[in-house]
Design a protein around this nucleic acid. Structure first.
Lengths: 238, 238
DNA sequence: CGAGCGATTGAAAAGACTCAACCACCGTGG
DNA sequence: CCACGGTGGTTGAGTCTTTTCAATCGCTCG
């Protein structure tokens, strides 16, 4: 059923204007602390857009004009290496607010963001976001917390990259993705997976096959189903 | 002359109480925007301590009680992997303020900090720091900027770990250390170097030998002198 | 003087990468 | 309706970097 969902109209997405008042994901977002009045202001000034798969939100080297609030869909955050190879740093999902880190310095984006699937994403102008930040101590608190959380996550990421084998890293990343994709199955190209794990796509394919043979995962063409989280965690070596 | 400095009294350090008013490194620190009154307050409440080599400032898993302002010395920031191996994330130097990231969440430290050499370090209590943060928008600005800068640095670090060879990574790290140690020579154990580069100490030794043979560096027992920054940058592949 | 730690070297083994070829699926256009 | 081209996925084989393990060395400290 999962497997064929893609072929049905069930999961088709299209442009829809989402009001912040009724937005289901807002309560988990940076803006969870907003009062009715603030939500209304947010709603007035945002711009809600539909993105197809593989459309960029922003590109490293350019300057921030505002933040992106993901209402629905997934976005990869990555940077490009010398050789042109992407390194994915993070996958953002519904409820995540993306691109606000670059707003606190006058430096250009150090990362790029591109949709991984069809997505509905709202844009909030830099000045609006900053003015909310000034007037709402709760938002500031949340932002500081988020920044510090991400710093911690990246330290762990660095450690994983530095100390774990590719096999362990793949297991780790699959578990992270399991959290991102929640009730859906993981749906990433082999190349994106490789660019997240930091390895070659061939290696990813071979290791996925191993995991499949060991009954840790099931592969449905492009989608990956986690069968045994406990064993996978053991494989991840942490 | 450099080489023998260690044996003379010239570089010996000892405890000294540094007044924030006259502190030479404050102007480059988080507290650069402070007015006379604020500097005075800072001075009143800080505690200045002398640390020998290899003393911890804080340990991952414990809770933050305040921030550490390095007046003199170097501090490694690291996390411990499953196998017990350290992964160094950052080396902090004079003027750096360390440990304030953990203060914005209620989570324990995710990183540890330990001195790499004899150091003079001031401690500012959490409540004092936070109260300055509330009353001084300039400090908040600086903190946000710093957080976003570090997030960017860690993304680059991840990319380097994921995409570069050990040799390239060593070159990269040597250049970073060159910036940290400025006019001094790099002075780290092979093991610390390995834990920064993310490799085995034997590999570090072999690669340092190669770099030495290629006239990129000179090795004075434990200290490393950079001879050719341009070539090293080329080796670093960026 | 002996213990012990950090640095060094050598040799063998393993993990991962590269390259090249091939396959499978999908949408297009004739 | 089918051949075509393109993209993404898969496989195999050979190569190379890096790791691991074991042994040695040199220096410092008690």
């Amino acid at each position: 059923m999962f497997i064929f969902a893609e072929n049905s109209a069930m999961l088709d997405k299209s442009h829809k204007y989402v009001s912040c008042e009724t937005c289901q994901v807002r309560k988990d977002s940076l803006f969870s602390s907003f009062c009715t009045e603030e939500v209304h202001q947010l709603d007035e000034n945002k711009v809600c857009s539909f993105y197809r798969k593989n459309q960029p939100l922003f590109v490293e080297g350019t300057f921030s004009r505002g933040v992106y609030c993901i209402n629905d869909g997934k976005v990869k955050i990555f940077t490009i290496g010398e050789s042109g190879k992407e390194q994915i740093i993070h996958i953002a999902k519904e409820g995540d607010v993306v691109g606000f880190k670059a707003m606190f310095s006058d430096d250009p984006y150090k990362l790029s963001a591109t949709t991984l699937e069809e997505s509905n994403i709202c844009f909030i102008k830099k000045e609006d976001f900053l003015s909310h930040l000034e007037s709402n101590p709760g938002l500031l608190q949340t932002v500081l917390k988020e920044l510090s959380k991400e710093l911690g996550e990246r330290a762990v990421f660095i450690k994983n990259m530095a100390q774990k084998s590719v096999r362990e890293r793949l297991a780790t990343i699959l578990l992270i993705l399991d959290g991102v994709y929640k009730d859906e199955m993981i749906n990433l190209s082999r190349e994106d997976l490789a660019n997240f794990v930091g390895t070659a796509t061939e290696t990813i394919i071979r290791l996925l096959k191993e995991f499949k043979e060991e009954q840790l995962i099931e592969i449905h063409v492009r989608k990956i189903e986690i069968l045994d989280r406990k064993k996978l965690l053991r494989e991840a070596g942490s």
